[in-house]
Design a protein around this nucleic acid. Structure first.
Lengths: 230, 230
DNA sequence: GCGCGTCTTTGCGCGGGCGCAAATTCCGCA
DNA sequence: TGCGGAATTTGCGCCCGCGCAAAGACGCGC
């Protein structure tokens, strides 16, 4: 239990939370081990549980009625999952899929609502987190609306670096597998176009890493130029 | 003051709020009359005030570094404006412009934070509202990513009808001026393409209303077909 | 080590919708 | 009522990026 509390304590959602809040949360929580490619829940299901990703990484997918897929965002340690749906009493709007092994804590809808109602700090933190996502989506919407594919891909990679990047010998690494298709679904384009673009960048020595090996950005400044130039 | 309370009482943000919450809110609030084309604040400014639109209608604009404009959404009576930025202590991410005369109530950042911290009901309502916007944006992102222009425009008009539509003799009216350019900026396209599309629809008798007169959708079911077909 | 399946690369052609430009219509206002 | 400016319509050509197709590379299990 104390181990769990120390996990919670490090997350943005529990930032500045007092002892009682932490204890109540830790007691009411369940734990769930996640293996790569497993899902936490499915888009459209009734929202019964709210999750907090302790470690690992998730891809949040949204499927269109006609079966196409869009990647809404990636989630990392400390991120809330399914919380908005639970608090709004609406079906989950998307499906979170593990892209690597991980672990999540979860609460029933009632427990989560109680937690937030009784601890204003948690409510404020939730608003912060959700608000941040809202603004990120607004930014992406703008990109999608005004910029061409190459710039969008550059911006997306930079965003991944910012959110999950890890320094390595020859640059910055995105520390999990990211297929061409996934990059395409993040950028409203096709895997073909992504492939062509990344090939060109590899030629220029901007990045490297094929297949299941992780992407390494060797010249982040060049990506910034592409994302911002004109 | 009581008049103000009765205004507040009807909004989603104050839903289920108890007497003390309402009184505190009403006392701390300022009032602001809005004329068409006036702005509440500007994108990039530090967020000092949080607003609640009492009546009227706003268009939320986001400008790109290179001067292009994107319409994030329209806001109607009862909507919160600038609240996320205030609570996150970040600059306003967009600019709200009045598209018709209206009135807003406003609170200082400190007053708003206090209000939410002391009244869990308000916190829950805020999460609901912000969460709803998040999900709407996810839906739009998906549309933008997977559908062609014609379907996106249809979906946008239907959304406007849902949010602000008013029944009239020959169909449903969108009760404020909506230029071709504004529709374009909502749909990541150009006013030219919007013009062509609406012209075609007018030929088919799906809708009518030119220039400064309001759009009237005469055959909403046809729009639904276009938005969903295939 | 071999073979199979999946992911990736690359070529090619086409088309949706942008960009530019000009004509036209409508509105507000004097 | 007439004028000036802004919004809208429409034409036309071109280009980005999709769609299809096929080949190639890599990884995994047997």
């Amino acid at each position: 239990m104390d181990a769990r509390k120390s996990v919670l304590q490090r997350t943005a959602f529990f930032k500045n939370a007092d002892g009682p809040a932490l204890s109540a949360a830790a007691e009411a929580a369940g734990e769930l081990a996640l293996k790569k490619d497993e899902t936490l829940f499915h888009q459209g299901e009734e929202a019964s549980y709210s999750y907090l990703l302790a470690w690992g990484r998730l891809r949040l997918d949204q499927t269109t009625p006609d079966g196409r897929n869009v990647v809404i965002r990636y989630l990392g340690p400390g991120d809330l999952v399914g919380t908005v749906a639970v608090l709004r009493r609406k079906p989950y709007p998307a499906t979170p899929v593990a892209v690597e092994d991980g672990m999540a804590l979860f609460w029933s809808a009632a427990a989560k609502a109680k937690l937030i109602a009784e601890h204003p700090t948690l409510a404020a933190n939730a608003i912060n987190l959700i608000g941040g996502r809202l603004e990120e989506l607004q930014e992406r919407l703008q990109e999608l609306a005004t910029q061409r594919v190459e710039r969008r891909i550059a911006a997306t990679l930079l965003r991944m670096v910012r959110q999950a990047g890890r320094r390595v010998a020859d640059g910055v690494e995105i520390p999990f597998t990211l297929s061409r298709n996934e990059i395409a679904e993040m950028n409203a384009t096709t895997l073909h176009t992504v492939s062509r673009t990344l090939s060109a960048w590899e030629q220029e020595g901007i990045l490297s890493g094929k297949r299941s090996s992780h992407l390494v950005i060797t010249k982040p400044h060049r990506l910034v130029e592409i994302a911002e130039h004109e």
